[in-house]
Every structure is written in structure tokens, then in C-alpha cells.
Simulated assay, not measured.
Amino acid sequence: MRQSFKLALRSIWGNKMRSFLTMLGIIIGVAAVIVLVSLINGYMDSVMKSFSDMGANQIQVNVTNLSSRAVNSGQMYGFYEENTNIFERMSPVVNVSGKVRNGEKSLKYTAVSGCSEQYGDMKGLKIKAGRSILYSDIESRQRICVIGGYVAKKLYGAEENAVGKKIKIGENTFDIVGVYEIKNKQYSESGGEDDFVWIPFTVAVKIEKNANIGDYIFTVRNVSKANESVERIQKFVVEILKNKELVRVMAMSKVLDSMNKQMAMISGLAGGIAGISLLVAGVGVMNIMLVSVTERTREIGIRKSLGANKGAIMQQFIIEAAVTSSIGGLIGIIFGCFVTAIVGKMINITAAPALNAVLIAFGVSVAIGLFFGYMPARRAAGLNPIDALRSD
């Protein structure tokens, strides 16, 4: 076995260009699998983090109120207070239309929402300057607001500068009482998660002239009980509206599970598509090894005449094919990791080489060397020593 390895390495080193061309397909195939799977996993992680930041423990409720039957915020608060052993927080959500501006400066895509004093905690945000909305602000319908870090920087230059200043939403003026920290400076942009203005939901209802709120967000104390929580909310609302088609209750944890499965399938498909290049590389390995057998017919004849049996000849050529593909696989791993890091930075995602992709790609490359090296090895082992010695 050791002698076969030495002969294999000597043959590879003695025919550098041919060996490199043999490895090239393996290198490209392994690198393609690693790059594709790693980039998709990196993108998946980025998307999943965004959804997780929205709150894996959240349940979103959308109610279509009718003129004859409707669910109001008082009823929802009553339901929440009766089930605080299951629900940790609750907030009505009222979308408010109107451009956000400060003097001549304005923002086009800022999301304006009416919410409760618990909304910031539900979103996992921390106050950078000032304070958050208070229960007293909601009760007394104060014209105050809290804003995201992006809004503060764009309209006032810095988070600290915004507190105590006024801001206009459409034709309505509000006093800024607090600014939330920017969650991710790298992704702080127009329309992003830091581009928002929140006001007391009681004020938002008055501005929008909508007595019945249609959207609510709950957070559960235990994510594993999300299904039970969804059923409980749905049952409560249906009892009032008498029509289950008028309510939609969605647990974010279930959305995340569904996305995880879909992304895993996409990652597997991408890896499979890239893996086709490894099969093509295997055909190249077989062809080059067949050429090698033809070129070394006389060498095989000499070895056989000196007593080498079929097994030894087969072992030599199979090991040579396996070593060639293994070296190609290792180079492909290094190249794939390098390209993954560069492309990840270019498209602004954190993409680390996926360990499963590296192991699978290398394992397949070695298996391909063994599989496609078998036929040339068998042909070499089957040569008649007399005919082989006569070969030029």
C-alpha cells in the first residue's frame, strides 16, 4: 500500500500539467458546492435573523370588523388580562398615513404606527435617548412620539438631538420624547427596521378616524405553546364576530419553521446542481487515467514480469486516481472558502464555509476518484505482460 502511494505521488508529480488538468474539474466542482451552499446558508441566516428580530414569540392577529359586529381594543385587553399566564405582552397596531418631516427635511418610506407602551419591548428595542411611550400617554391621548435611530439621524443629525424637538406626520405635529437605538448600523437605511415613528394608538385611531382597530400583536411566554395560544385567540374573536373567515391569527414561530424547511430544500438543490460538475469532473478523471494506462503499458508489463499480480496493479491505479481527486478536493476546499469570503463581503452578508458542504464535497470528490479510477485500473490489471512489454 505504501509503495502504491509513493508511485501514485511520483506519477502525479512527474506529469504536473496533466495532473492539474485532471484535478481542475474536481477543484471547480468542490469549490462550486462550497460557495453556493455557504452563500445560500449565509443569506438564509440573514433572512432568519431579520424574522427572528421581529419576534419568534409573536402572534399577529388581523380582524376584519363589520358595522354590525366588531372587536374593540377594550375587549382585546380584557382577553389579554385574563390570559397573562400565557401571553406576556399585547399591543394594538394602527397604521398611520402621512409623510414624516422636520422643516424642509422629509422621509419617504418611514413607517408610522400607533401602538401601546409595550410595543418597544415586544420588538426588543432599547431607548438610546429620552423615554418610551407611557400608559399615561395612551390614556390622555398625548401628542407625543418615539422614533427610530435612522429617523433621528436623518432629520436631526443625531439621536440625542431629536429629544424634545417637534416632528410632523402629515398635518399633525408631535413632540419627540424618545429615540430607540439603531439595531444594526450596517443595515440602517430608508424603509429599514430603524426607520419608524410610533405614537399612542389612541391618538392614531383619532387621526385615522377608525374606531375599531384591526391589528394586534401578542407575545407568548412559551414559544412551544404557540399553537395553543393561536387557537385561544381565534376562539375568542370568532365568538364575537360569529365568522372564522373574519380573523387571521399567525404565529411567527410557525412562519420561521416553514422558512427553515424551504431554505434547507433550496440549499440542498443548489448543492446538488453544483455537484453535477463533480460528476463531469469524474469523467475527466477516468479519461485521463485511461490515457495514463495507455502511456504506461510498457511499465505495467515490466511490473507484471517481475511478479506484480493483478491486485497490485489495480491498487496502484485506483490509489493514483483517489490521490489525484483528493488533492483536487483539498485545493477546491481552499479555493471555495476563499471565494465564499470575498463574495460574502461583496453582497454584504456573513457567509462562512458550511462544514457539511465541505465534508460532503470532499467525500464525493474522493468517491469519484475511486469510482471512475476503477475502470482504467481494471484495464491496466488485465493487460497481458508479453503484449505490454512489446508496446512502444
Rank of each mutant, 00 (worst) to 15 (best):
Y150D: 01
A351K: 02
N57V: 05
V151F: 09
F51R: 04
L383Y: 12
Y119M: 09
M44S: 15
F338M: 13
K123E: 07
Y216N: 01
G363S: 09
F79Y: 02
L278H: 07
T350M: 14
T324L: 14
E295Q: 06
G329I: 07
N172T: 15
S68P: 10
I147Y: 01
E139H: 05
I34L: 07
D257K: 08
S67E: 09
F372L: 13
K235G: 06
G336C: 12
E139R: 11
F317Q: 03
G149H: 06
I318Y: 08
S106Y: 08
R378V: 10
S46D: 14
A270H: 09
L7E: 03
F372T: 05
A226W: 08
V93H: 00
F79T: 01
D121F: 15
K206L: 11
S132Q: 13
V364R: 02
A341M: 14
F20L: 13
G373D: 01
T64Y: 07
I319C: 07
A56M: 14
A152S: 07
K16I: 15
I347R: 04
E159N: 11
L290S: 08
V177E: 06
I302Y: 03
C145T: 07
L39H: 04
G373T: 05
S136Y: 11
K154T: 11
Y43F: 15
T340H: 05
N227P: 10
A8N: 13
D53I: 12
N212C: 11
N102C: 11
M122A: 11
E81P: 06
G301S: 06
A357P: 03
A352S: 12
P200Q: 12
V249S: 01
Y374E: 04
S52Q: 15
N210L: 13
M286T: 06
R101S: 13
V339T: 05
A354F: 13
I302T: 04
N243A: 08
Y216G: 02
T294C: 09
E295Y: 12
A251M: 04
I144S: 08
V96S: 03
I386G: 02
T219P: 04
S267T: 13
N287C: 14
V100W: 00
V358R: 02
G78E: 00
Q3L: 14
